[in-house]
Write a protein that binds this DNA or RNA. Structure first.
Lengths: 213, 213
DNA sequence: GATGGGCAAAGTCATATGACCTTCGGCACT
DNA sequence: AGTGCCGAAGGTCATATGACTTTGCCCATC
C-alpha cells in the first residue's frame, strides 16, 4: 500500500508542481492539501496521513507551529519540512518541534521522493546544506557543554564520588571532607551534570564504566 | 578532473570491495590506501587527496584520532567516515573531530558514491540512522542549553554588566559592589559564557541588542 | 628601530557556601 | 483506611573567592 501524503504549502503553483511529481511515483499517494498551518492541523486530524510535507512560511499559522500542533495530536506523526530558506533558526525550531526531515526546495525530485520513503520508514533526512548547518550548530553546542572533551572530574568531585560509592550520605561526606553539607550537595550536582545523569547511584555506575573512578 | 580519494580501512577485503566499486565511477579516482590511522596521516601529507574515506576501528590509531590529526594539518581536508558501528559517541566524536560525513557500511554503493560527490562539493552527509541519532542528541543538548529560553542574567550579573557599560575596570567594579576583584572577574566570565562572546565590550553590545540591559 | 623582560588588567577554573525546591516516608488526627 | 502535615535527604541555583593563565603594552637595553 502506498504512502499517504498530505501537502502543505501556500503557493498553488508549488503545490501543483509537487503534486505532478508525486503522481509519477506509484508508492506515494497524495491524499490531502492545505494552504496554511491552521488548515493543515485540521486536515491532519481528518485524513491521518502517513506523512506531512510542510512548508514553513505561510499565512495564519506557520509550518513550525503546525508541526508542533500535529505532534501534540500524534507523537508518531511524520513531518518532512520543505522550505525555500534554510536559516539556522528555522532548522533548529523545526527539529525541536519534532520534524523528521528538513529539505530545501532546491533539492531534486529524486531526492524528495527518496526522502519521503526514508522518513516514512522512520529514518530522518536532511539535505546537504541543512546537514552542514546542523553540524556547525551541534559542534558549537557541544563545545559549550563539554569544554575539555575529556570530561574529567576534578579532584574534589572524584573524592566525593568515591564516598558516594561507599553509600555515604551527604552529611557523612561533609564530615569526612570537612565541608559544609551544602558544598557536598553542590559538588554532586556538578558530577550529575558532567555525567549526564540524575541520581548519585547512576553517577557511580557511569563513572565506573568510563574508567573515571 | 576526478575526485582524488584516499581509502583507510584495516580490512583488506573491505578495501578491495570499495576499490572495485569506486573504479566503476569515472569521476572518482582512488589514489592511496592506508590500513590504520597512523599510515593515513602520513599518506595524507604525501598525496594530498581531495577526500578521505575513513574507517573508525583500526589498530595503532583509530579513525577519529586520525581525522583530528589530518584536520590539524589541513583544516579544509574533507573526511567521510565509513564505519560498521554507529554508536552515538562515535558519531559525536567524529563530528567534533571535524568529519564532514558519517556513513554506516550498511549503505548502498550508490549512496556511498553520491555521498563522496556531495562531501567533495563541500556539503555534509549522514546516513538515515546517523541523522536520527544526531537529531536526538541535538534535541537533548538544546534543551539543556536553554532551560528558560530567555537566557536571563542574574541580578549580580546585570549589575556588573551595567558597570562595564560605564567603562569601569574590574577593580572599580569590585569596590563599587563590595566584592573581591576575583569575584568580579568570575561574574564577567559567566556573562561572557551566557552571551557567547569573548570580551566585555561585545558582551555589553549583545546584551543591549537583546534588551537584557 | 628591534627585542625581550616585566607588569597590570582581563579572563578561566576549581573551590566553597547557603537559600531554596522537591520527594518521600512516617505519623498524627479524623 | 484516608488525609494531610512535617521533616529529612537529595538536588539546583546564585553567590563568592583566590590561584593561575593570557594578553597587551611600556620601557630599558641592544
Amino acid at each position: 500500500m502506498p504512502i499517504k501524503v498530505m501537502l502543505v504549502d501556500d503557493q498553488q503553483l508549488m503545490r501543483d508542481g509537487i503534486k505532478m511529481l508525486l503522481e509519477l511515483e506509484d508508492d506515494i499517494e497524495l491524499i490531502a492539501e492545505a494552504s496554511n498551518g491552521r488548515e493543515a492541523v485540521s486536515l491532519y486530524e481528518q485524513h491521518a496521513p502517513d506523512l506531512v510535507l510542510m512548508d514553513i512560511e505561510m499565512p495564519l499559522m506557520n509550518g513550525i507551529e503546525a508541526t508542533r500542533k500535529i505532534k501534540a495530536i500524534n507523537a508518531a506523526a511524520r513531518v518532512l519540512i520543505l522550505t525555500t530558506f534554510g536559516q539556522e533558526d528555522y532548522l533548529r525550531d523545526a527539529l525541536l518541534a519534532g520534524a523528521q526531515g528538513f529539505l530545501l526546495k532546491a533539492v531534486s525530485s529524486d531526492e524528495l521522493t527518496e526522502s519521503i520513503r526514508k522518513v516514512n520508514k522512520g529514518e530522518s533526512v536532511l539535505d546537504g546544506h541543512s546537514t552542514q548547518v546542523l553540524l556547525d550548530s551541534y559542534r558549537a553546542l557541544s563545545e559549550v557543554k563539554r569544554p575539555k572533551g575529556k570530561l574529567l572530574l576534578t579532584v574534589r568531585e572524584e573524592q566525593i564520588l568515591k564516598l558516594i560509592d561507599k553509600q555515604k550520605n551527604n552529611r557523612d561526606i561533609a564530615i569526612n571532607l570537612q565541608l559544609a553539607e551544602g558544598t557536598v550537595k553542590n559538588y554532586i550536582s556538578q558530577i550529575l551534570e558532567k555525567l549526564q545523569v540524575h541520581d548519585r547511584n547512576r553517577a557511580v555506575r557511569v563513572a565506573k564504566e568510563r574508567g573515571l573512578l
